[in-house]
Write a protein that binds this DNA or RNA. Structure first.
Lengths: 107, 107
DNA sequence: TCTCACTATCTTGTATTACAAGGTATATAT
DNA sequence: ATATATACCTTGTAATACAAGATAGTGAGA
């Protein structure tokens, strides 16, 4: 069992939460997740997720010039994305409650 | 994004926690997880996980007669299993902290 | 008796996931 | 020139959770 496996399905929601705070690009999100305390999350994980969420209509993107490298693809939430974030938060709090119940209490 | 995806990698640890409380068999663990508030977790999920964890030396099993159906395969934690449970708890609390930070706070 | 419901385990096939590894390309500093 | 940091993307792989279904024992009621 690895930290990796425990992450499954949760990174998506965290990316939505990060984008909700401010318009943001993939490379920046990877750094942001590290600052929040996550183990380094590969760009090979993040970029496909962003592309899938765009395909699903949860986010939109625009290219903007950077002063320090190639163009950045900035993502924003759509209204569907905002709704999905809300639903993710609900699922997360539910999961948190259940796992803590199993871990901490006796039957 | 589904509840399903968010579960990935977490069920293992919850099973270890349930077995730690008392010797337990697969079918019973499925019911137990429901009582803890989890959405129904398929037996097609649980049995392969138990078999994998046995293969990895985290649990052992014994067959015992049942008064109400076929024999039950009761699982117990090995010392490796106990250690893995401890490590799972550490990883879980870390994950919990990080996800809540992303969801709740601004940068 | 026979059939239904419940108990209990396991297998097969599928979609999805996270990632390592590597490729491509731009900008700045040395 | 070349190195470093920035920035995006693709390919191939191992693992995951599950739906669906196979198999089988037990007990209750028609």
């Amino acid at each position: 069992m690895s930290q990796t496996q425990m992450m499954k399905g949760i990174i998506d929601g965290c990316l939505l939460a990060i984008i909700a705070k401010k318009e943001c690009y993939g490379y920046e999100m990877a750094e942001s997740l590290s600052e929040y305390g996550f183990d380094t999350i590969s760009e090979g994980t993040i970029y496909p997720l962003l592309m899938r969420m765009q395909r699903e209509g949860l986010v939109t993107s625009v290219l903007r010039n950077s002063t320090a490298g190639p163009k950045r693809k900035y993502y924003s939430l759509t209204s569907e994305g905002k709704q999905e974030l809300t639903e993710f938060q609900t699922r997360w709090f539910q999961l948190e409650k259940c796992v803590n119940a199993v871990i901490k209490e006796g039957i």
